[in-house]
Amino acid sequence: MKIGIPKALCYFEYAEMFKCFFKELGIEVVLSNDTDKKMLQNGIYASIDEECLASKIFLGHVKDLISRKESENIDYIVIPRLCTFKNNQTMCVKFYALYDICCNIFDSKFLILNVDYNKGENELKAFINLGKKLNKGSYETTISYFKAKRMQKNYEIDKLNNQLKKLNESKNLKILIVAHSYVYNDKYLGFTIKDYFEKLGVDIFYADINSSIYKNEEMKMRYKNISKSIYWKQNIKLLNGVCEYLDKVDGIIYFSVFPCGTDSLVNELCIRKVKNVPSMNIILDEEDGMAGIYTRLESFTDILEKVKK
């Protein structure tokens, strides 16, 4: 059996986990290709014009998998539906509807991974239900789930240690990127910027990778310094990162896609509250002229260098 996973949105949160989970169950996984211009165009064509850029890209990825369905014998496409989590944390409402939208606009077989703590669907249960639809017993899936979970955790800890090591050793200009994992990990959105900073000789760090993955209440609650009433899971993680790296970096860049619902509020608050570090807000849209963004990044680094001297 073969399943397809679109490499966009929530994939990046669960990347290692998906890989390991399906490998343990003996199911082959096909990932969609990296985002390119054509895929974005396909996504834009399939979506409502006001949707956020990241979800347009997501639909492009689903379309890519569907076009490869025949040639590569993909049986199902898995669409995660992440809603509510522990401690009243929720995701952006876009994630609530991805599965239903895909079912309505595409003609293909989809499987759902439904994580909704408020309705009693915790993560384990969601994976067991997914396993059931793939004809796997709950015992088998439970074991695979815990193995996969451990893999994911180790992967995240590795990533964090690498970043911290880089942060301590780095003598270059240090910039913190505050962006969702699906923005900075995307080949089309995030990588161009990463490459550009490499060219400029600037070390970049991601707020998304931070110590809040450990079971430590103090580290998990750092975000309260910036915002008390926030309830979006991903933005909480980002704010935790901002609090952690704040004193160690020279500048902060807020990256979001147009029109991101959660970032529109949280980044505004963050910019207003964090005042002792220079910051810049960059919003990416589907117009792909990068010259304007490169100019802004370059002048921002120039300013930071002057401040440092």
Binding site: I48, E50, Y96, A97, I105
Partner: peptide, 16 residues
Amino acid sequence: PFGCTPEINAMPILQK
């Protein structure tokens, strides 16, 4: 309103 995610979610379904 512009950018209202839940209603944008409903739109492809309404179109169908």
